[in-house]
């Protein structure tokens, strides 16, 4: 009954995928020497040449770091929109995040982060989420490797099947938990974060009309970041 359409053109997603692949490669390239260097250290530790006290000293040194820092990370995450027009289609996909900031206290850092999430779910459909947030990171103690992080900013969720494109933008809040692993001047940080947005209209890029008035983003992501001080 309805006219059939050709395969939707792939726009945006391909470029983003290539970008994320390049970033992933770059991150692995940067990380590899540290990972390789860490292996003998663990061997040394197993031979008794490193002690828990030495590790604590590294952590303490890390905690005393001052000045600006920058980080980049990759991981997996799952995002979805909740709205009257939205189907429940949470699925894991690639995430990336970048952040810059500075230490304002031994246990308190602030910065700005940009995170991205990309899901290619077939039939030419891409879902992307991105956020820009002011973040704060808190260490429970000067020597703690655990930290809590929170962010406040704006997020955008988009659906694109090549013909129809919709997006929802709204203020968002992120909360996360991470752990620092100091290594030769950088820090590896596995982190788990959740993000939620306030409701916002889900609009057509083409017409600006809202297909739903109250679309809320929900996102969780696990990330492995590397931080330079």
């Amino acid at each position: 009954m309805r006219a059939s359409r050709g395969a939707p053109a792939r726009r945006g997603a391909t470029g983003t995928t290539v970008l994320l692949t390049v970033l992933l490669g770059a991150l692995l390239t940067v990380l590899w020497p540290f990972v390789a260097a860490a292996q003998p250290a663990r061997d040394t530790a197993s031979r008794g040449l490193a002690t828990p006290a030495a590790i604590r000293r590294d952590a303490s040194a890390f905690a005393r770091r001052v000045g600006l820092w920058a980080s980049a990370g990759l991981g997996r995450g799952s995002a979805g929109l909740t709205c009257p027009a939205c189907q429940d289609t949470q699925s894991p996909a690639l995430t990336a995040q970048f952040a810059v900031g500075g230490r304002v206290h031994e246990r308190f850092h602030v910065g700005v982060t940009m995170w991205n999430w990309l899901d290619v779910i077939g039939d030419g459909v891409d879902r992307t989420a991105r956020g820009l947030e002011v973040i704060a990171r808190h260490y429970p103690s000067n020597t703690s490797r655990w930290f809590l992080t929170g962010g406040l900013g704006t997020s955008r969720f988009a659906i694109d099947d090549g013909d129809a494109r919709f997006h929802a933008s709204a203020p968002s809040l992120s909360l996360g938990l991470g752990w620092d692993l100091p290594m030769r001047g950088v820090v590896l940080s596995p982190m788990l974060a959740i993000t939620s947005s306030t409701g916002g209209p889900l609009r057509s890029d083409r017409t600006g009309n809202a297909i739903a008035e109250d679309a809320r983003l929900g996102l969780w992501r696990t990330t492995l970041s590397i931080t330079w001080f």
């Binding site: 027009a85 039939d123 659906i159 099947d161 090549g162």
Partner: peptide, 13 residues
Amino acid sequence: RSGGGAGQLLEVR
């Protein structure tokens, strides 16, 4: 729903 891929994600009532 739209006939395209977005139709599996979005619907109008």
